[in-house]
């Protein structure tokens, strides 16, 4: 019975994507102090940007670059036009405005591309299956795990080994200190927001071959990445990864045993973490 192994690998692939999406969410939340409810919509925008480029060029690498660039620019624009007015407003307003933004992004995409579901083909070089310990496994899923792992490693280096990373992490602890240090907070916020958007968009394109590309594809991902953040702990780099992997495995393994309960189990796990350890598995107490 190799189903379990296959599902565990599926869980790893799903978890890798969830980690990535949740990390984008956590970075933005950590520094700017609010949850971006448009994060799922940016995931979707990234998938569309990549799909358009791929259908013109059939080059998956270009598609990834396009998703990154487009969502990074969209992030820059959104921050300058709207988000910066909201840093000093109550969290409820911040949630509402990003929710409104999500509606706008989804509807713009729907207006341009209609609501028809598109297929993002698996890149030819990763299309087949590979034999892995006696099971045939879709090659792209393995590629996806590698891509996500590499991206997470790059983000780790950026966040923990560079000056901008120092500022971001200091900002997660105390935005005031960053201010006092005389850092150009304005520009830092702009870049971090756009980086969060680009991470969402990048996740969107690399996950697209496994999903149906349509304007509403970001909604489920948004909620699942909330769950990841709650499980892993807000503001924690490794919390996002741990939470993502746990969530991915819960969904995949429950699918193997009791498919009806796969999503239910995920939310039940979240409730459990919340009761036992409200700050999340790797979260620090008292951060809200």
């Amino acid at each position: 019975m190799h189903l379990i192994e296959a599902q565990a690998l599926n869980g790893l692939a799903l978890g890798a994507v969830l980690s990535l999406v949740a990390l984008g969410l956590t970075i933005v939340f950590g520094l700017l102090g609010f949850v971006n409810f448009a994060h799922g919509a940016l995931f979707m925008v990234g998938a569309y940007a990549g799909w358009v480029v791929y259908s013109q060029t059939e080059n998956f690498f270009l598609a990834m670059v396009a998703a990154l660039v487009v969502t990074f620019i969209v992030g820059l624009v959104i921050e300058r036009v709207l988000i910066r007015m909201y840093y000093r407003r109550p969290p409820e307003d911040q949630i509402l405005v990003t929710y409104g933004l999500a509606i706008i992004l989804v509807e713009i995409v729907r207006a341009i591309f209609t609501g028809v579901t598109r297929q993002m083909p698996t890149p030819a070089w990763a299309a087949g299956t590979v034999q892995l310990a006696g099971i045939f496994y879709p090659q792209y899923r393995l590629v996806l795990i590698v891509i996500a792992a590499v991206t997470l490693a790059i983000l780790y280096v950026v966040l923990f080994r560079t000056r901008i990373g120092l500022i971001v992490r200091a900002g997660i602890d105390d935005a005031l200190i960053v201010n006092i240090l005389g850092v150009n907070v304005n520009r830092t916020f702009l870049l971090v927001f756009a980086l969060g958007a680009a991470i969402a968009g990048f996740s969107g394109i690399v996950d697209a071959p496994l999903l149906a590309v349509n304007p509403d594809m970001g909604t489920d991902l948004l909620v699942q990445s909330f769950v990841v953040v709650v499980i892993g702990g807000v503001g924690s780099f490794f919390g996002a990864i741990l939470g993502g992997l746990i969530a991915g495995e819960i969904i995949s393994l429950t699918t193997a045993f009791a498919a009806d309960y796969s999503s239910v189990a995920l939310y039940a796990a979240m409730a459990l973490v919340l009761i036992v350890r409200p700050q999340g598995l790797l979260g620090v107490e008292g951060r809200a």
């Binding site: 609010f34 949850v35 409820e92 911040q94 909330f226 709650v230 807000v234 809200a288």
Partner: peptide
Amino acid sequence: QVGVYFAMLTLA
């Protein structure tokens, strides 16, 4: 939880 956490949890 309060604020954003509360909103996220109700959604979940």
